[in-house]
C-alpha cells in the first residue's frame, strides 16, 4: 500500500498548499484540487460525523463555490481581506490514515495552526485537517479538505475569511 502513496510526497503537497495560501496565490492553490473537489469547515459544536447537507457548517464549498471564493478574495471589494491579512499555515503530524486502492485515494490527517494577522490582531485557527488525496494522471490532487477547529467557536476571530 505504501507503494501508491507515501508520506513524503503527501507532505510536500500539503506544505506547498500552505505556502501558496500564505503567498495569496489562490488560483494556483485551486490547481491543487480536483474538478469535483470540496472544502468544509464545520461549526465547532457539531459531532464528527455531521454532514453539511443537514447540519450548519461555517463553510461547505463545492468546486464551483471554491472558485467563486477565490475570485471574491482576489477583489478589492472583499473588504475583510483588503488590505490583505498576513497568514501563516503550519502543518504538522501528517498521517496517512487509510488507502482506498480501488479509487486510488488516500485519507490523510494533519494537525494545523493558521495564524491570521490584521489590524494589530493575530488570531490562531487551531485544528486538524482531513484530506482525501488522489492521483490524477500521476499527479497528487486534493479531492476533499475538511478543517475541524479545536475551538469553542470563532472567538475572537469573528470570521473565516481566509482559506484555512
Amino acid at each position: 500500500m505504501s507503494k501508491e502513496f507515501n508520506r513524503n510526497e503527501i507532505e510536500d503537497l500539503l506544505f506547498l498548499e500552505a505556502d501558496l495560501l500564505d503567498d495569496w496565490k489562490l488560483k494556483e492553490w485551486l490547481d491543487l484540487y480536483t474538478k469535483d473537489a470540496s472544502y468544509y469547515v464545520p461549526s465547532t459544536d457539531l459531532p464528527k460525523d455531521a454532514k453539511a447537507d443537514d447540519s450548519l457548517f461555517y463553510i461547505a464549498d463545492d468546486r464551483l463555490r471554491m472558485e467563486e471564493r477565490v475570485t471574491r478574495l482576489m477583489k478589492k471589494t472583499a473588504h475583510s481581506e483588503y488590505p490583505r491579512s498576513k497568514t501563516r499555515h503550519l502543518v504538522s503530524n501528517v498521517r496517512i490514515r487509510s488507502i482506498d486502492t480501488d479509487n486510488d485515494e488516500a485519507e490523510v490527517s494533519a494537525a494545523v495552526v493558521t495564524f491570521r494577522t490584521k489590524g494589530g490582531n493575530t488570531d490562531p485557527y487551531i485544528g486538524s485537517n482531513y484530506y482525501r488525496i488522489c492521483r490524477e494522471n500521476g499527479v497528487l490532487k486534493i479531492r476533499e479538505k475538511l478543517c475541524r477547529l479545536d475551538l469553542d467557536g470563532l472567538r475572537p476571530h469573528g470570521r473565516v475569511s481566509i482559506i484555512l
Binding site: P42, S43, T44, D45, L46, A50, D54, S55, L56, F57, Y58, N121, D152, G153, L154, R155, P156, H157, G158, R159
Partner: peptide
C-alpha cells in the same frame, strides 16, 4: 438545524 455559528466581533 444542528450546528451553531458562535463567533465574536471586536
Amino acid at each position: 438545524v444542528d450546528g451553531s455559528q458562535e463567533y465574536a466581533i471586536r
